[in-house]
């Protein structure tokens, strides 16, 4: 898989950065000339991943969220969202739709379900006490091919 283009951003886990993060990734993805629905899917998936870092990984603390986005040679976007937060003890359970550890804050427990459904591929690797890496891939601009 050839990397055609790449960008990296890192920012503080402040909730006001959620909008910045999804907008930055979508601006980068615009190189692939995505359709309106594809860009909405991507925007939502990135928002979910970044929100997880802020709400869960860095709960009660502040840390750095790092996003790497790559454009691959077959019109595919690759996104890696990395935190050095608390980690997820049971990734399988965390990925179950409607499972949440923060119901009092009206978290719907749908973050991973949205990422999984709106992107083509999703992988989650986590180590308790060290952090979590979420990678997602999606082919874009399919309508224009």
């Amino acid at each position: 898989m050839k990397i055609v283009n790449e960008m990296k951003i890192s920012f503080k886990s402040k909730s006001e950065n959620e909008g910045f993060a999804r907008t930055a990734v979508c601006a980068f993805a615009a190189f692939l000339d995505p359709g309106i629905e594809e860009i909405a899917d991507l925007r939502t998936a990135v928002s979910e991943a970044v929100t997880n870092c802020i709400v869960h990984a860095y709960r009660g603390t502040e840390g750095i969220i790092e996003i790497t986005a790559r454009i691959l040679n077959d019109n595919e976007i690759y996104i890696r969202i990395k935190d050095k937060g608390c980690g997820i003890p049971d990734v399988k359970r965390a990925m179950e739709p409607l499972y949440t550890t923060a119901p009092c804050e009206e978290r719907a427990g749908l973050g991973f379900a949205v990422m999984e459904s709106f992107m083509d591929k999703l992988t989650v690797k986590s180590t308790v006490g060290k952090g979590t890496v979420v990678t997602m891939r999606k082919k874009l601009g399919a309508i224009n091919e």
Binding site: T44, S47, E48, E105, A108, L110, A113, V114
Partner: peptide, 13 residues
């Protein structure tokens, strides 16, 4: 213009 699952929490609540 945009809503993620935080909006679902809002509607559910």
């Amino acid at each position: 213009g945009f809503m993620d699952s935080s909006g679902i929490g809002l509607v559910m609540g």
